[in-house]
C-alpha cells in the first residue's frame, strides 16, 4: 500500500464526508508513519533529524514539531522572519539568572556501527557575540536511558551573521543507540542580553573534500622522559580557509635507547592525531593525520606530544622532518 493522493473533488467544502475519505487519511498516515520508522529503525538507520529547519509548527505553539522546549527565567523562544525565512530564536533579556532557552530533539536512532556517527551540522548566529550558546549531543542506551553527553559547541564569542558549522561529535559511549540534540541559546550562566538563531540541523552532513592545499611548517626537535603524553612543542600554521579540514603530515621520532619506546602524536585543541611508536635510535618517519577540525580563525596551533614507555629513564625525541615538513590540508 503506497501513498494515495487526495483529489480536489474529495475535499470540496459542500461534499459529504464519506468513509472512503477517512480510510484514505488513515492509510496515508500509516504509510508515512512506517516509512519514517523504516528510515529510523531499519537496517540502514539513516539517523534523520525530524524538522531539521525547525520551521514546522502545526499547532502554532511556537515550539517546533518533534522538538521540546525549555525556557530559562525571563527567556522567550519564538519564530522570527528574516529575509522571508522562518527562523527559530531564543531571546535572553539580560539579568543575573535569566537566560534564553533550549530545544531538545526527539530520540534519533543511530547505527550500532562505531564511527558511523561523526559530525553534526547546524547554522547558528546571535545578535550579540558574548551570549552563551551551546550545542549538545546526548547519548541514550537501547532502553532510552541517558548515558552521557558531548558538548560539541560552547561559545561566548558567537558569529553575529549566519554561519554554518560542522562539529565533530567526538567519542561515542559504548552501548549508545539513540541520541538527542540540544540547542541552547542564551544559556543562563552568562548575563548577556541578546538573541540566538538556529536552523539547518543535520547528522553527518556532507563533508565532501573539494580542495587540497599544502603549507610548510616546522616543529623543532623536542624531547621528554615523561611516561605520560606531554605537550613538548608547537607551531602556528596560517590557514587560508575556513571550514572543516583534514590535516596530514609526516614527522619523525626516535629514542636514545632501545629499551625506551618513543611515542609521538599531535593535537589541535582537543582533537588528536593517530599515534606512532619506535624503539629505533635513528629518526623514523611516520604519517600523522588529524581529521574533521572546524577552522574558524586565520591560524591554528599544532601541538606535538611525546611519551616514553615506562622502563629505562631515557629521553625520546621527535620533530617534524625536513624536507617532509609540508602540512597538507584537505578542505
Amino acid at each position: 500500500m503506497g501513498y494515495s493522493a487526495f483529489t480536489d473533488n474529495q475535499i470540496q467544502g459542500d461534499k459529504a464526508v464519506r468513509q472512503e475519505l477517512w480510510q484514505k487519511v488513515k492509510d496515508n498516515d500509516e504509510y508515512l508513519y512506517y516509512a519514517i520508522a523504516a528510515m529510523q529503525a531499519g537496517g540502514t538507520k539513516m539517523m534523520v533529524v525530524l524538522n531539521p529547519f525547525l520551521e514546522n509548527d502545526l499547532n502554532v505553539d511556537q515550539i517546533p514539531d518533534s522538538w521540546t522546549r525549555y525556557l530559562y527565567p525571563g527567556g522567550t523562544g519564538q519564530y522570527a522572519t528574516i529575509s522571508d525565512s522562518k527562523i527559530y530564536c531564543f531571546a535572553h533579556p539580560g539579568g543575573a539568572g535569566n537566560g534564553g532557552g533550549y530545544l531538545t530533539s526527539d530520540y534519533i536512532e543511530m547505527s550500532s556501527f562505531w564511527g558511523v556517527l561523526k559530525n553534526l551540522g547546524f547554522v547558528l548566529w546571535s545578535t550579540v557575540a558574548g551570549i552563551k550558546n551551546q550545542v549538545i549531543v546526548e547519548f541514550y542506551s537501547n532502553n532510552k536511558v541517558y548515558i552521557s553527553s558531548n558538548t560539541i559547541y560552547d561559545s561566548v564569542a558567537n558569529p553575529t551573521a549566519r554561519q554554518s558549522f560542522i562539529a565533530t561529535i567526538g567519542t561515542i559511549p559504548d552501548y549508545a543507540r539513540y541520541i538527542k540534540i540540544k540547542l541552547v541559546g542564551g544559556e543562563s550562566s552568562v548575563d548577556v542580553a541578546g538573541t540566538t538563531y538556529f536552523t539547518g540541523i543535520s547528522v553527518n552532513p556532507s563533508t565532501e573534500m573539494t580542495t587540497e592545499m599544502i603549507v610548510s611548517a616546522t616543529i623543532a626537535e623536542g624531547y621528554t622522559a615523561n611516561t605520560v603524553w606531554i605537550d613538548v612543542n608547537s607551531v602556528v600554521i596560517p590557514l587560508p580557509i575556513f571550514g572543516l579540514v583534514n590535516i596530514g603530515f609526516e614527522a619523525e621520532i626516535r629514542t636514545t635507547d632501545v629499551s625506551a619506546t618513543a611515542s609521538q602524536r599531535f593535537r589541535i585543541g582537543s582533537v588528536y592525531s593517530n599515534e606512532n611508536s619506535t624503539v629505533s635510535v635513528s629518526y623514523m618517519s611516520n604519517y600523522y593525520k588529524i581529521e574533521n577540525i572546524y577552522i574558524a580563525s586565520s591560524s591554528i596551533t599544532l601541538i606535538q606530544q611525546l611519551m616514553r614507555a615506562a622502563g629505562s629513564a631515557f629521553n625520546v625525541y621527535g620533530k617534524k622532518s625536513i624536507p617532509k615538513t609540508n602540512i597538507k590540508y584537505i578542505i
Binding site: T151, G170, T171, W229, S270, Y272, Q305
Partner: peptide, 15 residues
Amino acid sequence: TGESFESAEAHIRNG
C-alpha cells in the same frame, strides 16, 4: 599548553 579548564573533559575523552 594553551588549553582552558572547560576543555578538560574533551581532552580526556579524545586523548
